[in-house]
Nucleic acid binder design. Structure first.
Length: 431
RNA sequence: UCCCCGGUAGCUCAAUUGGCAGAGUAGGUGGCUGUUAACCACUUGGUUGUUGGUUCGAAUCCAACCUGGGGAGCCA
């Protein structure tokens, strides 16, 4: 008899089924056990009565430790008293592997304990729901990119130098005397790919050796980076807006159950509809000053400033046109105002902060050369990158979207560390 | 790197002014005719992060170190 997944039980009413899973919880009285069985596809209540299985088996089933792997035979029945509306009347239970005392209880735990038990924490209900949502976000990205005609181009993980020359990188030994670094962005390679295939993207891990200790930072995180040839800043903002609305509506459509497990306020997600507000850096600075938050034009927006700006709106907000001094060397300057860079940051609502950063890239060889010298970067290191401006340079742009930050916002989670299966953070690399 | 907060039972926490180290939960035993974080009774469980200092007396005060959390900077 073939095994039934718990998620398929509503379609198997009054049928005999075999379930395989782990004992999640149990409540017992003298003649009945209520077993909560989970198998990754769902959780179901299984009824065991002393009359059905006999005295000995009944006592034995009452002793099975939590999280033991078991095989259970029974009949599915619709029942309003059961959580989920379906329960299984059990005829036999076989223990596949008895568990030792399970460390994670049905009570609150601190973050340190949970992170040290991440391999087991992943089994809990909310974490399963969160991984479903992460999976849905990534699939929404890939499917949308495919529908929009973009080609997936994987960027290398080992790189010979910094992409921006600013962030701290993880250094590793390459062969012989060479040094290599773990990538902090695939963008420069996507620019090369865009000149080959037009519309491209990458989606993969990226590494920052910054000693950041906040709920928004991971040492290793996943980034989605689309890049488009023959595109300007407006095209980049249009794509960012379209991708975020597609991702959110897809999660709302397919993962409502998981959002409910996480007790997410779904109405807030329904506010995420195009068009998103677009506000220039200068407008944002003026408005902050008008509200009494004094801010001098020319500085970069800090996290508290971003919170103020995003609090003005219910949906993500796009802040564009930053002072060029605070942005990377490759960002194109506004042709109408050389003090301004054609960059955009997207700030998520509800205080989740920056989830996207991007913009139009500098496509003029001489300007780029001057910028590399000004930032004291090695021209030799960027020779291949400069080649892109020598052979048919075209206006182009794109952005980077932080996958975990996006999942964190959509799922309404406190900290990005829960939004990746095995988080790597400052001083935390176990398990 | 800097600023703030914490570390007490397996886990989550309490302990008044410096005066006998305690609950809940998990584990164990027993009870209970449909439980919903089941419930009820009993019960095992301690080098109070480490080292040193002050004191008649330190979980409590002081110093250093270890370790965790939040934030700044940096960014997605």
């Amino acid at each position: 008899m073939s095994r039934t997944r718990i998620r398929d039980l509503p379609g198997a009413a009054e049928q005999e089924v075999v379930l395989k899973g782990w004992l999640y919880n149990r409540r017992s009285s003298k003649k009945m056990h209520f077993l909560q069985l989970r198998d990754g596809s769902g959780i179901v209540q299984c009824i065991v009565t002393r009359d059905d299985v006999g005295e000995d088996d009944f006592a034995q089933i009452g002793q099975i430790p939590y999280e033991s792997a078991i095989e259970l035979k029974g009949t599915a029945h619709a029942d309003d008293r059961a959580p989920g509306g379906v329960e299984v009347h059990t005829s036999a239970v076989a223990v596949i592997s008895a568990a030792e005392d399970y460390p994670i209880a049905k009570q609150d735990h601190g973050p340190d304990f949970l992170l040290r038990h991440r391999h087991l924490w992943l089994r809990s209900r909310k974490q399963v729901a969160l991984m479903h949502i992460r999976d849905e976000v990534i699939r929404a990205i890939r499917d949308s990119m495919h529908e929009l005609g973009f080609t997936c181009i994987d960027a290398p993980i080992f790189t010979p130098n910094s992409c921006e020359g600013t962030s701290t990188l993880f250094e590793v030994d390459y062969f012989d005397d060479e040094k290599a670094f773990l990538t902090q962005s695939g963008q420069l390679y996507m620019e090369a790919a865009a000149m080959a295939l037009g519309d491209v993207y990458c989606l993969g891990p990226t590494f920052r050796a910054e000693k950041s200790k906040t709920r928004r930072h991971l040492t290793e995180f996943w980034m989605f980076e689309p890049e488009m040839a023959f595109a300007d800043l407006d095209d980049v903002m249009d794509l960012a807006e379209q991708m975020l609305t597609r991702i959110v509506s897809r999660v709302l459509e397919h993962r409502q159950d998981d959002l409910e497990v996480l007790e997410r306020d779904i109405e807030k997600l329904r506010n995420v509809t195009a068009p998103f507000p677009r506000i220039s850096y200068s407008e944002a600075v003026d408005r902050m000053n008008a509200q009494g938050h004094s801010f001098e034009w020319g500085g970069d927006l800090g996290a508290p400033d971003e919170s103020i700006i995003s609090s003005w709106f219910d949906s993500p907000v796009m802040v564009h046109g930053y002072p060029e001094e605070v942005k990377a060397f490759y960002m194109k300057r506004d042709p109408d105002d050389p003090r301004i860079a054609c960059g955009v940051d997207v700030l998520a609502p509800e205080g989740y902060g920056e989830i996207i950063g991007g913009g139009q890239r500098e496509d003029d060889l001489d300007v780029l050369l001057a910028r590399i010298q000004q930032h004291q970067l090695s021209e030799e290191d960027f020779r291949w990158y400069l080649d892109l401006r020598r052979y048919g340079s075209a206006p182009h742009g794109g952005f980077g979207l932080g996958v975990e930050r996006t999942v964190c916002w959509i799922a309404g989670i406190e900290h990005v560390r829960e939004c990746i299966p095995f988080p790597r953070m400052l001083y935390r690399i176990y398990p």
